[in-house]
């Protein structure tokens, strides 16, 4: 599958400050997380994709169109949800979203129809005739998503979509983002510094730090630990289980009497078989057995430290 966006050797400067340095990346289809601490260059990358900033060098394509040359066609097919509050003053939600639809190129009759649909989808159906100024923070986040979606974009750029939301609002926003990308077939690029948000919504992640690419790939690949170690959880602490495993050639990495992580053999199936044999011999009951993975936070920290 061709990438949704492709960036090559991109450098973006604000005066003497380099926000992105020789940055190259392919953004695949699906839901992709743009991960990095504040100031890493996430928003700059999004603004470059939108054609808001002129790179000092490098080039890129979005949906097969050249950045800087076909910006209008790119923006026709992109929806952007900015990080900060943004709305057009003096309008009700349905007027605002319909107006955004018309700005996105929809005929007036279509834009009003889609405004109602999108507001309903984003959970603002009941409040659609209220002025946007009276909305709560959570509702303002939702309406930003609605205005980004109304013209039917192929790619959605979400900059910190859970910014300022309470736990319930955050949960609902993440569900919406996941629904858009996984059920409605819209490609989504989510920028966030919140690892759990990215882990909840995305399949693929791009890690930035100081304007450079530090890691990228499927989240499940990034979380994988080298050497196929295995995690074992026993039903109850069992004396002798670790020793029996050691006798069979499985070296213990860490363990607390009930939970263990063993260095794996080349074939994970062999490791599993030997663990079951050791449990049987030592009288232990295995509750859970799985290939060891690290958290996204550990993977992120490793990428950042590198």
């Amino acid at each position: 599958m061709p990438p949704v966006a492709s960036i090559r050797d991109l450098t973006v400067q604000y005066g003497s400050f380099v926000a992105l340095r020789d940055f190259s990346v392919d953004v695949p289809e699906g839901c992709v997380g743009l991960l990095g601490p504040n100031g890493a260059g996430k928003t700059t990358l999004i603004k470059t994709l939108l054609g808001f900033v002129d790179p000092s060098q490098g080039q890129g394509q979005v949906l097969g169109r050249q950045i800087g040359r076909h910006d209008l066609q790119i923006r026709q097919n992109i929806g952007y949800m900015p990080e900060q509050d943004c709305h057009i003053p003096g309008l009700t939600a349905v007027q605002y979203v319909a107006y955004a639809g018309e700005l996105g190129g929809l005929p007036a009759n279509q834009s009003i129809r889609r405004a109602h649909e999108v507001l309903e989808y984003c959970g603002l159906g009941e409040a659609r005739y209220r002025p946007v100024e009276t909305y709560s923070t959570g509702m303002k986040q939702r309406i930003k998503l609605a205005q980004a979606l109304v013209h039917g974009p192929q790619l959605l750029l979400l900059d910190e979509p859970t910014n300022g939301l309470d736990p319930l609002g955050r949960e609902e926003m993440l569900n919406l983002v996941r629904s858009v990308s996984h059920e409605k077939g819209v490609n989504v690029l989510v920028s966030s510094h919140l690892l759990p948000d990215i882990e909840r919504t995305c399949d693929h992640v791009i890690v930035l730090l100081g304007g450079t690419l530090r890691a990228e790939g499927l989240i499940k690949d990034l979380k994988r630990v080298d050497g196929h170690p295995m995690d074992v959880e026993l039903r109850a602490p069992a004396n002798g289980f670790a020793e029996t495993c050691a006798d069979r050639g499985l070296s213990l990495i860490e363990g607390d009497g009930q939970r263990f992580r063993f260095e794996g053999l080349e074939d994970p199936e062999n490791t599993s078989r030997m663990l079951f044999e050791a449990a049987s011999q030592s009288g232990a009951q295995i509750r859970r057995l799985s290939l060891a993975v690290r958290s996204l936070e550990e993977a992120f920290m490793e990428a950042v430290d590198a």
Partner: peptide, 17 residues
């Protein structure tokens, strides 16, 4: 008013020069 509510981001992120 558009400056105050970041509405320019809405306008310029659409195919609008």
């Amino acid at each position: 008013n558009d400056n105050g509510t970041n509405a320019l981001l809405v306008y310029l992120s659409k195919p609008c020069r």
